[in-house]
Computed example of a mutant assay.
Amino acid sequence: MQRFNIGLLLALTAITRAENDCPRIISRSGWGARPSKHVEYMKIPVEYVVIHHTVTPSCSTVSMCVDRVASIHSFHVDTNGWSDIGFSFLVGGDGNVYEGRGWHQVGAHTYGFNRRSVGIALIGEFTDSLPPRIQLEALKSLLECGVKEGELAENYKVLAARQVSATKSPGLALFQEIQTWPDWVENP
């Protein structure tokens, strides 16, 4: 697996955060993504956000999260045969956001909703406990940033993957948490 200069990576991404008041977003090249085999673009601004968890061990440092995202990417591409990582973004327990397919590409995260939603996965398993506060704050900051930059509709709606797919994602504890958010909707 390719290693990166994490100090340089954080210095470069911190500039982005200061300029646009968005969370630190580690680019695809920052975590070593392979090029996508197929790209399909979404209509912007996006109306829905679907929240997932990765059902993997969590991560609390940049190097751990980079390894976890790269592993998920390999699983999606090499095992599932997908053209790229399925999620639009992944949020680590280190407080960073990792770019998957990003704002503009149709993902492979929620069958039937991929063309009209951004799929955001929190790295970890959140059935019995909530993600760390820093992870939840990074997610909320990403959503605010998406609205400010015109990527998400101002009246976007948050859904849990379990609401629109046969899954237990994003875990019961996280599902109960997002039901308290003002942008969560019971029915899409």
Rank of each mutant, 00 (worst) to 15 (best):
F4N: 10
F4H: 07
I6R: 05
G7A: 11
L9D: 10
L9C: 01
I15V: 14
I15A: 06
R17D: 11
D21F: 11
P23R: 01
I25C: 06
I26D: 03
I26W: 04
S27K: 11
G30V: 10
G32W: 10
K37M: 07
V39H: 00
E40F: 01
Y41D: 12
M42C: 05
K43N: 12
K43S: 09
K43R: 15
V46R: 04
I51K: 07
H53N: 15
V55E: 10
V55F: 11
V55Q: 12
S58Y: 13
S58V: 13
S60C: 00
S60W: 14
T61G: 01
M64E: 15
V66G: 03
V69L: 01
V69S: 00
S71W: 15
S71K: 12
I72V: 13
S74G: 07
S74E: 12
H76Q: 06
T79Q: 09
T79E: 13
S83G: 04
D84K: 05
D84F: 14
D84R: 06
F87H: 12
S88I: 00
S88V: 04
G95T: 13
G107Q: 10
Y111S: 15
G112K: 05
F113T: 11
F113P: 02
R115D: 09
V118Y: 00
L122G: 11
I123V: 11
F126L: 04
T127R: 12
P131Q: 05
P131C: 04
R133P: 08
I134M: 09
K140L: 14
L142S: 02
L143E: 10
G146I: 03
K148R: 12
E149G: 04
E154N: 13
Y156T: 05
L159H: 14
L159E: 06
A161K: 05
R162Y: 09
R162N: 13
K168S: 14
K168I: 15
P170M: 10
G171S: 06
L174E: 03
T180K: 11
P182G: 12
W184G: 04
E186N: 08
P188D: 13
P188F: 13
